[in-house]
């Protein structure tokens, strides 16, 4: 895999030459590891309570909320019949507590309090699954910001 085949750089539409391309090439290890992180949070072997299609829907939802349409489409393509949840306006009765947590961690991080975690625990979500959810949402926050930043450098718009 070259660095241009990573999700981040394909969504940026990085021009192959110039000082930005040189800078990216100088950090190719970081782009490669970022892609490995995407594998780990989207398509882990041990997925706990959140199967790959559901994770893809959550990722698409977070990308949509972050204004990253191309990235949202990338994830929505793997969401299967969970794809309605990729729309931030949609919810599902069984998953309402999960979705409200995911949305808050993604978008109102500073307002998270202990009660938010306690509510998930009271609803029967295991501690391991709470960590898995946080890793997924947190990775998306990183990925969206790297794409937005590099795109801004390159002078293109989302």
């Amino acid at each position: 895999m070259t660095q241009f085949e990573t999700t981040v750089l394909s969504k940026v539409g990085l021009l192959p030459q110039g000082s930005l391309a040189d800078a990216v090439a100088g950090r190719r290890n970081i782009f490669g590891m970022s892609q490995s992180a995407e594998e780990a949070v989207l398509r882990p072997k041990d997925y706990g309570a959140f199967a790959h299609d559901l994770r893809a829907a959550f990722a698409a939802r977070a990308a949509r909320q972050a204004g990253q349409g191309a990235l949202a489409d990338h994830y929505a393509a793997d969401a299967g019949d969970k794809v309605p949840l990729a729309d931030p306006d949609n919810s599902e009765a069984d998953l309402e507590h999960i979705l409200s947590f995911v949305d808050k961690v993604a978008n109102r991080t500073r307002d998270i309090v202990a009660e938010d975690v306690e509510e998930l625990q009271a609803a029967g979500v295991s501690d391991a699954d709470i960590v898995r959810l946080c890793e997924l949402v947190a990775f998306l926050a990183y990925q969206c910001r790297v794409i937005a930043g590099i795109r801004l450098m390159q002078g293109t718009t989302p």
Binding site: A37, E39, V41, G48, D127, R132, E135
Partner: peptide, 8 residues
């Protein structure tokens, strides 16, 4: 708890 994420 999410060892695959931690490892990368």
């Amino acid at each position: 708890h999410d060892v695959e994420s931690l490892a990368v």
